[in-house]
Amino acid sequence: MTLKWEGVMPAVTTKFTDDDQLDLVTFKKNVEAQLAAGVSGIILGGTLGEASTLTSEEKETLVRETLDMVGGRVPVVINIAEQTTREAIEVAQKAEKLGANGLMILPPMRYKATDYETVVYFKEIAKSTALPIMIYNNPVDYKIEVTLDMFEELLELDNIQAVKESTRDITNVTRFKNRFGDRLKILGGVDTLALESLSAGADGWVAGLVDAYPAETVAIYKLVKAGRMEEAIAIYRWFMPLLELDISPQLVQNIKLAEVATGIGTENVRAPRLPLQGEERKRVLAIIDEAMKTRPELPDYLNL
């Protein structure tokens, strides 16, 4: 399957039962909702997927089950965020063997690598697999920025094809486009800058609140690409209080609460994460409740 690196790609949450096992029934319900809404791919094992809390067996189960659920309708992309280059290569090769369609790779974890070390890390992984790769550029959370000069070196490898752009500097979209044209596909990675990124020429959106509101997310993308900006902006303004729940250390708990409201998820998280409590829980629920009361009617965006 050709991976085009465009459209909306949800970083899906991992569902758990009340006794802390994988909840594949609810997970499938959410994946089907994403597909029905018109997403362009599924990204497994990111921060929203609580990957750091999953065993290697659980990760493999999720990959196998997701590939089966999706059935080739859209690409399935596996996130790599490992402690060592060797481990990252092993995950990449296993993902390819299982039938994944692409990789999203974070920089080295728990070590602030130099620019040279970061480039070598990405290159070594890319050389170990034929899968197409998206580099996750998020210096705010991971303290390492992948600069344009670093991408100049990385793009020597044909399977490094895209960037999840999460620097929070919206002008980076234009810088990447000016330097690399279509050689490097750009997917906005910050929910609260999504419309701005798409307007500046980003090819897609790796989204978080899409896990609870897939149709609204894809509608914004489709409307922007169709030039129907007023309609896109109206939905985006309604969406913004929800999108702000994604830029929080408790983004997983926030988004899972929203999934409960829309009927495609549960609140269960895996420790050390715990469900929201007290005033913060009331605040987040109030935002979700208001959004549900004012949820917009969407145009026929799938046929744009």
Rank of each mutant, 00 (worst) to 15 (best):
A202S: 13
P249V: 07
G227F: 15
A232D: 07
I160N: 07
L198F: 10
I220A: 09
Q250L: 09
A219E: 05
D169W: 08
D203P: 14
K185E: 00
S166M: 03
A194M: 14
E165L: 06
R183T: 10
V210Q: 10
L198A: 10
D203C: 13
D169K: 13
G189I: 06
L243D: 12
T171C: 02
G188H: 01
W238A: 00
V224T: 15
I220F: 11
V163E: 02
A200P: 00
I235N: 04
V218M: 07
D169C: 07
R228M: 15
V163Q: 02
G188I: 06
R175A: 11
L243A: 15
P241K: 05
V190C: 05
A219V: 03
L184S: 06
R237W: 12
L184I: 11
P214D: 02
T174K: 14
L242E: 01
T217N: 04
V190K: 01
E216I: 03
Q161C: 05
V163R: 02
P241E: 01
L242W: 03
G208C: 08
L242H: 08
G181K: 10
G204F: 11
W205D: 07
D158K: 11
I233N: 12
N178K: 12
A207S: 15
V210W: 02
M229S: 13
G204Q: 08
A207I: 01
V210K: 08
I186D: 04
D211M: 09
V163M: 01
W205S: 06
A200L: 15
D158P: 04
T192L: 07
K164C: 00
E165T: 06
P214T: 00
G201M: 08
M240D: 01
A207N: 10
L245M: 09
T167F: 05
R237Q: 14
